[in-house]
Amino acid sequence: MDSTDEVIIERRGSAGIIRLNRPKALNSLTLPMVRTIAPALEDFAADPAVASVIVMGEGERGFCAGGDIRLLHRSGREGSDEAETFWREEFLLNHAISRYPKPYVVLMDGITMGGGVGLSAHGSHRVVTERTRLAMPETGIGYFPDVGATWLLPRAPGEAGTWMGLTGLTVEAADVIHAGFADHYVASSALPALVDAIAALPAATSGAEVHALIRTMASDASESRLAANRNVIDRTFSADTVEEILTALMAEPGEFAAEAAGVIASRSPTSLKLTLRLLRAGRTSANLAECLNRELGACKGILYNHDFYEGVRAAVIDKDRNPKWSPASLSEVAAADIDRFFAPPQPPLFAN
């Protein structure tokens, strides 16, 4: 099969293997990578000799640190269609992963953020390790959790997904499993043997048999911080306004609540309100496709939002880590300011 420098496609035994190959960039996702992965998955699905697909990242630091936000930033500034093209094709890939007809085994070893969550959390067999560091940190760059996160996060236990979406804080393996974003914990040193074992399975292997195999190499992750603080999270993040959530956090004793309050106070006020509204809409949505379509509409609105450009500037261009949000406070962000992000994309992402 065809490979590119950024994605390596190979066959090993009964396994089709996709390796993200930008280790110096923590395997951040580009449009050419999406355009290599999507047809590779289609080819593997159609090949009767392929029992399962394994997706992994090269290097020891990251599975995939997210999408190419520099491209999105440049496209928005130039007024080109590159950003929308990337989002459309990435979201269609996320949806295809969620409906993949064969076992989709993803090794979330190392940093897994943004677009990396889209490549992993929608899969059927999701493996984390002691090196996994997962986050949806978009409110810190004037953006919002996308790639179907507005479907996934509301389905985490209690309000754990609201905590993850608003704070953008990094969580480790046990928390990823608690949130429903992963299934198994396997030591990173055992991953090569796991890949070999999956590749040695017969071509007619079922998803249940792949799960059973992974379980033989899996162990228990350490205690989940999110599970341990579930009562606090559920008490403070159940409100439907960011202001009420912050008030509840500030009234709550303990370092966990204080950390969350401090982080949220540093995020883009517009992004916070948009994210919460998208999460609440996702909670009552019928399916992932509905959420992805809504997210695409919000993505297009982001390109006209000051905070996205300022957030990317502060995080990855100038790297001063000192964004100047506008509006600068939650009280200045009106409901009408958020309404404009909910214009349906044209054409829709999915045909009716």
Rank of each mutant, 00 (worst) to 15 (best):
L292H: 01
L194S: 04
G165I: 07
A227T: 12
A15E: 03
G262P: 04
A281C: 07
T150F: 05
E89L: 09
I245N: 01
A328K: 08
L274C: 03
A248L: 06
A336H: 13
R215M: 10
T247V: 13
A286L: 11
M1C: 11
Q346D: 15
C64N: 12
T216F: 09
G180M: 08
N322I: 07
S188P: 12
G76F: 07
G142N: 01
D339V: 05
A212Q: 11
P192I: 06
L166Q: 12
M1Y: 05
G311L: 04
E295I: 01
P269T: 10
G254P: 07
M113N: 13
I37M: 00
P192R: 10
L194G: 08
M56V: 10
S222F: 09
G161E: 08
A38S: 07
T236F: 01
F341H: 09
S206L: 01
A179T: 14
L152F: 10
M33T: 01
A315V: 09
S268D: 01
T241I: 03
R277G: 02
A174L: 11
V55S: 10
G123H: 03
E42P: 10
T275V: 02
G16K: 02
P103Q: 04
A49Y: 09
E138M: 08
A40K: 00
G114D: 00
T216R: 13
S268H: 05
G16T: 03
L119Y: 01
A334N: 14
R22A: 05
N94D: 15
Y100G: 04
S188T: 14
R19S: 08
L249H: 02
V210D: 04
A121S: 15
A265W: 01
E223T: 14
L349W: 03
G79F: 03
W163Q: 10
L92K: 14
K273W: 05
E130Q: 13
S98M: 07
H73R: 14
V53L: 03
I97Y: 08
F256A: 04
G180T: 15
